[in-house]
């Protein structure tokens, strides 16, 4: 939670609690959304990626999804159609033609971006999603009721749902290998990447690194770190030689994805001030009308 918002909540909480007589921390009960300065991230250099799809192999292995043999992933025909992360492939690599050099297509790994202001965390009806201190956006499957609002909310269209399961279908997405990263490990995809196109490190250091790379090779990169500011910043960031729109990374403003809906939500609902005021207003109208008319308000008739 950033500083300005925390301040706002504090102030609003005091006022709100005073008027509504409700403890702020009870009202603001929501999922965890920590923005630690030391949160980790990954810098994806699409100019280095060779599309070997070893990350797909390692990812499945790390998430108990059958992953076959490593050499199966040499199959290039999968690049004919654009693929999206799914319940059995939390990360996928897509290939795009490079008009400047047809011999060297552009490969782009796709997975959850792990937003700093995640829409899914904001959206989740049961608060199953949370932004962890190390940057990971994870979710608690036991809480999930399968409403799929996270999928509606996600600005990158990442979460997938097990539509074929009748019982205990799960939402599935990249979890930043939280089981590994929470104890100082590194994500499986980063570990296996032969080209080290994926750099795992503290987010602010990655931003610095990306800047230096662009500065040192202005011909190689466009001057844009995708994810540095998009939707309020993401833990995963991309460098590329071509405009990100051409690489199927959607154009987004810098405004946090849940921004408007959350503030409206808070304006309408938080600390119950508007509802209670409305209640009081309607009650007043009703009472005045009753006095004037001398009417009884009783049974449904």
């Amino acid at each position: 939670m950033n500083q300005s918002r925390r301040n706002f909540i504090k102030t609003a909480g005091v006022i709100g609690a005073g008027i509504a007589g409700v403890k702020p921390d009870k009202v603001s009960a929501g999922p965890k959304n920590i923005l630690s300065d030391d949160r980790m991230g990954v810098l994806v250099d699409t100019t280095v990626c060779i599309g070997c799809r070893r990350c797909e192999f390692a990812c499945r292995g790390a998430h108990d999804i059958p992953n076959g043999e490593m050499k199966d992933y040499d199959d290039r025909s999968v690049f004919e159609n654009m693929r999206r992360p799914d319940v059995d492939a939390l990360t996928v690599v897509n290939q795009f033609e490079n008009p400047e050099n047809t011999a060297r297509p552009i490969d782009v790994k796709v997975q959850c971006m792990h937003c700093d202001q995640p829409a899914c965390v904001s959206a989740c009806i049961v608060g199953a999603f949370s932004k962890q201190e190390n940057g990971a956006v994870i979710w608690d499957t036991d809480k999930c009721i399968g409403c799929r609002y996270c999928m509606v909310a996600c600005p990158f269209q990442v979460p997938a749902f097990e539509y074929e399961k009748a019982i205990q279908p799960r939402i599935m997405k990249c979890d930043f290998c939280f089981d590994r990263t929470k104890d100082g490990g590194i994500p499986a995809c980063v570990e296996i990447c032969p080209m080290e196109a994926l750099t795992y490190g503290k987010r602010f250091e990655l931003v610095k690194l990306a800047r230096k790379k662009i500065e040192a090779n202005p011909d190689r990169y466009i001057n844009h770190i995708y994810g540095e500011h998009e939707v309020g910043g993401t833990s995963w960031m991309y460098l590329a030689a071509r405009d990100f729109k051409e690489l199927a990374l959607p154009e987004h403003s810098d405004a946090p994805a849940p921004g408007a809906s959350e503030s409206i939500q808070h304006a309408i609902f938080k600390y119950f001030i508007p509802p209670i005021s409305l209640f009081a207003l309607l009650g007043g109208i009703m009472w005045m009308g009753k006095n004037k008319n001398g009417n009884e308000l009783e049974s449904g008739e």
Partner: peptide, 20 residues
């Protein structure tokens, strides 16, 4: 793959980068 200095690519990446 866990590097102290992020600006220097690791050995694996260096090898593969050179060849590939």
């Amino acid at each position: 793959a866990l590097r102290d200095d992020l600006t220097v690519i690791g050995l694996k990446g260096a090898y593969h980068g050179q060849c590939l």
